[in-house]
Nucleic acid binder design. Structure first.
Lengths: 184, 184
DNA sequence: ACCTGAACACCGTTCAAGT
DNA sequence: ACCTGAACACCGTTCAAGT
């Protein structure tokens, strides 16, 4: 009854997403096509559209269900703001490096996914008062800090920064931020 | 003798590049196609390949001849390093905002163009010693600073930062960097 | 020298038809 | 319900042929 002639099992969204993510990890989002994905799944290209609205929605789904939950935010445990900021930055870095190709792509296509999600902003805004940032500058500073770390991670992902230096550079970056954050 | 039936003048690389840049400014690099470009120039799509090797080379050419020269680096005039750094950041920002779509694109496609060009890195490495950055950290710090500013400009270009706040945020960013740069 | 038409190997997606 | 083939409107690019 409609199950593919070439496959025993019917398609599922989960299988489609998992395979798509594998292809993205291997060759980047640009190289993922619905037709290649179908071939990889041993299925007619058009079968995919029964489980997924279109390519954009597919990518959105992968992000929301597979990638975003990987961000492990530091708890509000009263630790010094420097430590919490460092923990947040490293959590963000781990996320970016888990699926660099997808991460790079979605962060350059704001239409695909809302950036200010996953609680990252909340944690940032919780930390900034403790760092001595005056209230009227907190939103702006949150934008700036995210832009900073984001840019550095992007540069890493794109290979602008040598793999061996990436670790040391990230430390330099966090030191610079924690030194510069409090206004004297 | 080969001149297009539909046009009086023969094609030139300059005309192709200028028109392509106009289309990119209007709709982004993704929406530029060789066929649309040809239509805009009132010419057969294949005529373009007589003046340009392929699409990537076309974009590379536009960057090298039309965009990169727009970066106005601050002179080594002995001004305080804070002022020079601020001038450099603003020069970079002006460049990014002149052709945001193209700028965003090439900075995410390292294959298209070598990032560390245009003398930006030289100026950075000239400034850092005056800021008290120890020699063994200068290269890393240059990478970090570029990543920072780059990320912020990217966030601006992609609309992640409200247009009215962009100016104020950039000031916050430069203040933070100049405060955090010197090690105590 | 410069331009062009036909063709190739790709895309995403719609729609009507199959089981 | 689930899958599929043919078709449409696009891509970038090659190649042989035109003037």
């Amino acid at each position: 009854m409609g199950v593919s002639a070439r496959r025993g099992t019917p398609l599922t969204v989960e299988e489609i997403r998992a395979t798509a993510l594998r292809l993205i990890d291997a060759g980047g989002v640009e190289s993922l096509s619905m037709r290649k994905l179908a071939a990889e799944l041993d299925v007619n290209p058009m079968s995919l559209y029964h489980h997924v609205a279109n390519k954009t929605e597919l990518i959105k789904g992968i992000c929301l269900e597979t990638v975003v939950p990987l961000l492990h935010l530091p708890p509000a445990d009263g630790a010094p703001w420097q430590d919490q900021l460092r923990a947040l930055a490293y959590a963000y870095r781990r996320l970016a490096r888990t699926h660099p190709a997808l991460w790079t792509y979605v962060h350059n296509h704001p239409d695909v996914i809302e950036l200010k999600e996953g609680g990252l902003w909340e944690v940032l805004l919780r930390i900034l008062p403790a760092a001595g940032v005056p209230e009227d500058k907190r939103l702006g500073t949150a934008d700036v800090l995210h832009g900073f770390v984001w840019g550095l991670l992007l540069a890493e992902s794109l290979g602008h920064i040598g793999g061996d230096q990436a670790e040391a550079n990230f430390e330099i970056a966090i030191d610079l931020i924690t030194r510069g954050l409090p206004e004297h």
